[in-house]
Design a protein around this nucleic acid. Sequence first.
RNA 1: GCCCCCAUCGUCUAGUGGCCUAGGAUACUGGCCUCUCACGCCAGAGACACGGGUUCGAAUCCCGUUGGGGGCGCCA
Length: 465
Amino acid sequence: MIITRFPPSPTGHLHLGGARTALFNYLFSKHHGGKFILRFEDTDKERSKDEYVESIISSLKWLGLEWDEGPYFQSKRFEIYQYYAQKLYEEGKAYYCECSKELLEARKKELQERGLKPRYEGTCREKGLSPGSGRALRIKVPEVAEILFEDLLRGKIVFPADEVDDFIILRSDGSPTYQFAVVIDDITMKITHVIRGDDHISNTPKQLIIYQALGVDPPSFAHIPMVLGPDGSRLSKRHGAKSILEYKEEGYLPQTLINYLARLGWGYGDQEYFTMEELIEKFDIKRVNLSPARFDPEKLLAFNGYWIRTLGSKDILPHLKPFLGDYPLYLYSEDYLLEILESIKPRVKTLKEMAEMMDFYLLEDLNYDEALVKKFIPPKKVPILKSFIENLHLYDFSDEKSLEAQFREFADREGLKLKELAQALRVALTGKTISPPLFEIMRHLGKDRVNQRINKVLKLLEGVH
RNA sequence: GCCCCCAUCGUCUAGUGGCCUAGGAUACUGGCCUCUCACGCCAGAGACACGGGUUCGAAUCCCGUUGGGGGCGCCA
């Protein structure tokens, strides 16, 4: 069975890059009928925060990336790391080091100044030190010429062995470092495929050394390229990348994020739009591109527009409701909401815009912008609107087509084209110059509200003209 | 500085030696539709980083250069 994992460190919110890594792991495991595990890498006590655990969890849930196992917390697994560390120590594959941070720092600086690679030189390697306070446990890197592995996407990757020094696996306070904890976790959680950002490529040889010391076969590795910001710089929480939850608040659909993220660095012929189901079916890790991809907010927005107008109103409504807080929703039926949603759909790119554009459908009493009303309903059109509402009772509001036909006849009698009356009517009914088609609006608003709104506008104009 | 990875329109991508006068998406421009705005449709402009090879033939294979990204922590 294929088992993948997503191991965020709770030191920040989930952003696009992390979400994409989670997605690819999720898709890969689901495509193969496998398992997807969530694990928090919170061994850094200073920077890890509970609020980030919460926000990462709700981000993943919102995206629909549900895990089959976990969440695990490394901070609760210290005995496990201790056990394996002890084992390596006893077998002589790891040793304690008493060098102070200051000393190490100074040595590295010195090496760097001489144009050498900054690395630990094995000062304590042969000292045979026993555990003690202030002592960190280092792994003894075997003396081989090179370390190599087969990356699922890139093929063979070779590192000269002197690139890797005797790195620390247990800090002097006994806590495991990242390199050690990942490996132990991946072993004990039986991870078969590690899919992660290519910033981890150079960590891989270190981890392979741990696998080797433990005598365990490593999992398969697939290093996916990073997501870059629009300017080509690295996208990361340290550079103010937006959290997934912010996109939610701005009115993006989870479907949009999933689709967009999947297409960032991955392609399936000329197909652009995918549902999660399609992605699971069609996702092939080997088709992931090797070069870093820039995040393009404009395309994300376009994709959101696509999904808003493509998804059924029933699927959108639950996502839209949080944006409708200012409206007296209790006045309306679910069916009414679905209908007006349908009417706005092709005109907006976010749910936030949608909620704003819907106001005239949901507010009982519109507040008009006087200047706007004055501009679009000049004095000579006032009597026409008056005449229109006087005859309102003759109109059939149940059908857009006949409403339109009747209105066109009316305009004709007044010696005007529909075109010449449209904006005046639109402003009266919606308070704005942009809206869905007039007769669709009238049908949804109903005779009473149409009557009431035009009357209000006429009244308002009496005092102005 | 050393090591690793990468390189097709502005951006995301299709392309795996001949189907490429390089396809799609997005953004942009023009047009159509039209009661406004969108949607939709049609058209246009826009890319194989550069230099060497290999080959009858290269966007596709190899080498170098350049450019971009990443790593070199008792961070993850």
